[in-house]
Design a protein around this nucleic acid. Structure first.
Length: 721
RNA sequence: GGAUCCUUAGCUCAAUGGUUAGAGCGUUCGCUUGACGUGCGAAAGGUUGGAGGUUCGAGUCCUCCAGGAUCCACCA
């Protein structure tokens, strides 16, 4: 045995051994309890980061349940990550001086496909390097044909049952990225913008966006505001940059009399509050800003100017005309920006597909309240319920190429009532040859693709259902489902992921999973926190404080990194990680190795020593060790069963190092020298049991030691606790 | 404006109402002990943010205050 544990020498070989011997492959075994986890599919567009390494919790649970004798499944996958990936890819294109507009749809799609496939296999190998006990034979990709087919069927089911609808409404749109988003993708940032007080007919009103005034279709005041009561319902004459115009005065409760002057110009097509007011009062929706973020023809001579430039010029012109009363330069407010590129979002009136949330969230809330899904730590249940109650209808249309194209078709003819009722739209799972409503052969497929999360929301049941080669949702209602792979592992045991995607993913999986399968997709939700740097700051490339997990594995071994992510933290809370901490855990792995080395060397000594009767006595201190171990194990099981992994690791760490090595081995050195067989036996037994207990956290060193003692073809994974 | 979390050793954090509040890293002193210097032995370091309360017992539960973090919300 080497005097030091050298992970670099054994990790690769050990992982291949596990994989070749199919230790991670799950099958249906009615005599065993099933335990299943679906890996949150990493985006197939980049290297793994520490957030992915946090999935070590899943490996801990899987390996622990293997020891309990359960039939385990940990199903890996990859996410095409629609918009995210297209964004990353476009940046690559930019470096080559190209843009996505240089290619047609099919070419661009193929280019991204190649890019993703390369990254996907890279990502998979990195998961292997972390030692994850994933069943690679079950791996799925969100763009696999059978998965796409499931996604289509879900969409069709929703469409047929009225849960998905097409509507033209105001959506969050990024003119730089060229796509709309759901509410969740909007990032609000505090910003300082001048607040302009404009002369508006007989009123003065405050606005930060004078450039939208060409699309004003009313002026609103609060119905209770006495100052303006007499104007309500009247029409006022306003002097503008493009000449005088008339404007109706309306009363709406959304207007805060305390803000500004208590008078608001209403621009229903460019502001969410105004949109609501516009709908309530049946106002006209005039469009002043187009998809490129430039003013439209209704802006007259300002047409074609980009928003910010237009604002500047318009303010100057308003000032020249004496229409600006004053400017509040100190005004701060929250602005909706694109979470990806950071540009201010431009609300746009667009026809999009929406998922009706209420009927879905109602069932999800019920399931949570009935504890069909349990949250760990418990506080996240409150968060989940809050989200489920507050979701708006979900915009699932994205104006991008990379992703699953929406299988909705618009008929050009609409030659019967049914077709007209549907506004020409129909949904088809396969390629249609005629309009499903009127039979016309002229129709066009929607250009848009699904929000990635729409497919992710179906991930647990989609990945399991397709394992038997089935990709039809009908099977859920048939007898065929019984005893098959899906039924055995669904609902999955645990959904483990970062708390930051609770609304994006966990809640949506719950809603859609319940809707399609009539069952929760997982029984327990275990959420982990963010990894920060050693000063508690967020890791980011610009700060230069990013720790690369693969680099750490190269230097200190996977076990060290894994334990550093779990040791001494509270599950569900953010944590600080430093290279020093990883080194500390590397030292622990080495300690584990060296206890083995001590036993190994003494085993050889034993053989040479005489076998007098005295040497078979069980010493008092050995009895004490046995007792202490028994207590340790009981505590360990309790902690593991209640998801307190950090405490469990701390327990084993303390026992092996502080007690077994520092205390017992030191005390027992003399008897061992004398060849006391009983002592060595107990020492070995206790140590091996602890190896099993440590294995979920540090799979490599424990397996390496196991093989040294038991033989190359043996594995700790064949053991039970 | 709401919600959640946090404030414990020099730093980063643990501790499920119950011995003397722990760990990792750092600091000081000593150890060429045949498992390991990636180690061993010893030591310093704490009024658990503040004030009340509940309890036989509070870092932990309750109320208030101070400070910090994150998420959410349509103040133009």
């Amino acid at each position: 045995m080497d005097s030091k544990f050298q992970p670099q020498k054994v990790e690769k070989e050990i992982y291949s051994f596990w994989e070749e011997n199919k230790f991670f492959e799950a099958k249906v075994d009615k005599n065993k309890k099933s335990f299943s986890i679906i890996l949150p599919p990493p985006n197939a567009n980049a290297n793994l980061h520490l957030g992915h390494a946090m999935y070590v919790y899943e490996d801990i649970m899987i390996r622990y349940h293997k020891f309990l004798g359960d039939e385990t499944l940990w199903l890996p996958g990859a996410d095409h990550a629609g918009f995210e990936t297209q964004y990353v890819f476009e940046k690559e294109l930019q470096k080559q001086g190209k843009s996505r507009f240089d290619y047609d749809r099919d070419t661009l799609y193929q280019m991204i496909w190649d890019f993703v496939l390369k990254n996907k296999s890279n990502m998979e190998n990195q998961l292997r390097r972390l030692g994850f006990a994933l069943d690679w034979s079950r791996e799925k990709f969100t763009l696999d044909e059978d998965i796409v087919k499931i996604v289509y069927q879900t969409f069709k089911k929703m469409f047929d049952e009225g849960l998905v609808y097409r509507d033209e409404r105001l959506v969050n749109y990024c003119t730089h990225c060229g796509t709309s988003f759901s509410d969740l993708e909007v990032k609000y940032v505090e910003r300082n913008d001048p607040l302009y007080y404009l002369k508006y007919g007989p009123f003065t009103l405050a606005t930060v966006r004078p450039e939208t005034k060409f699309a004003d279709t009313a002026v609103a005041v609060n119905p209770a505001d006495k100052r303006y009561k007499k104007w309500i319902g009247k029409e006022i004459e306003v002097e503008g940059l493009l000449g005088n115009f008339k404007m109706k005065v309306i009363a709406d409760k959304a207007v805060d009399p305390q803000f500004g002057t208590g008078v608001v110009k209403v621009t229903p097509a460019h502001d969410f509050v105004d949109y609501e007011i516009g709908k309530r009062h049946n106002l006209q929706f005039k469009i002043a800003i187009n998809r490129q973020g430039r003013l439209t023809e209704i802006a007259g001579k300002y047409q074609g100017l980009p928003v910010f430039k237009a604002r500047k010029i318009i303010v100057e012109d308003l000032q020249k005309k004496g229409l600006i009363v004053r400017i509040d330069e100190k005004y701060t407010h929250r602005v909706a920006t694109c979470y990806k590129c950071g540009q201010t979002l431009e609300p746009q009136l667009m026809p999009q597909w929406f998922v009706k949330i209420k009927p879905l969230s109602r069932e999800a809330i019920k399931a949570v309240k009935e504890k069909k899904v349990v949250f760990v730590p418990r506080r996240f249940e409150k968060m989940a319920l809050w989200w489920l109650k507050n979701f708006h209808d979900w915009n699932i249309s994205r104006q991008i190429v990379w992703g699953i194209r929406i299988p909705a078709y618009k008929c050009r003819k609409m030659s019967n009532d049914k077709c007209q009722m549907a506004n020409g739209w129909f949904v088809s799972i396969g390629k249609p040859d005629k309009c499903e409503n009127c039979g016309s052969r002229e129709f066009d497929q929607d250009e848009d693709t699904f929000d990635t999360w729409f497919s992710s929301a179906q991930w647990p049941f989609a990945t399991l259902l397709t394992q038997n080669g089935d990709s039809k949702l009908e099977i859920l209602n048939s007898k065929k489902i019984q005893n098959n792979f899906f039924n055995y592992f669904y609902p999955t045991s645990v959904m483990e992921t970062g708390y930051d995607i609770l609304p994006w993913w966990v809640c949506r999986m719950l809603m859609v999973g319940l809707y399609v399968t009539k069952n929760v997709p997982f029984k327990t939700v275990f959420l982990h926190g963010l990894v920060r740097d050693k000063k508690g700051q967020k890791m980011s490339k610009s700060k230069g404080n990013v720790i690369n997990p693969m680099e750490m594995i190269d230097k200190y071994g996977a076990d060290a990194l894994r334990m550093a992510l779990v040791f001494g933290i509270k599950e569900g809370s953010d944590q600080s990680l430093s290279e020093e901490k990883i080194i500390g855990m590397r030292n622990f792995a080495n300690k584990v190795w060296n206890i083995a080395r001590f036993i190994y060397i003494n085993r050889q000594v034993q053989r040479q020593k005489s076998k007098s009767k005295d040497n078979n006595l069980e010493l008092k201190i050995v009895q004490k060790l046995k007792k202490e171990f028994k207590e340790e194990k009981e505590k360990y099981l309790k902690l593991m069963n209640s998801y307190r992994f950090s405490q469990a690791l701390g327990l084993v760490n303390k026992f092996l190092w502080r007690r077994l090595a520092d205390f017992y081995i030191e005390q027992l050195k003399e008897p061992l020298k004398d060849g006391n067989i009983k002592t060595l036996e107990v020492l070995k037994k206790v140590y091996f049991e602890n190896l099993k207990m440590l294995h979920p956290f540090a799979p490599f060193v424990t397996e390496a030691v196991w093989k040294i003692f038991k033989g190359k073809d043996q594995s700790i994974l064949k053991e039970n606790l």
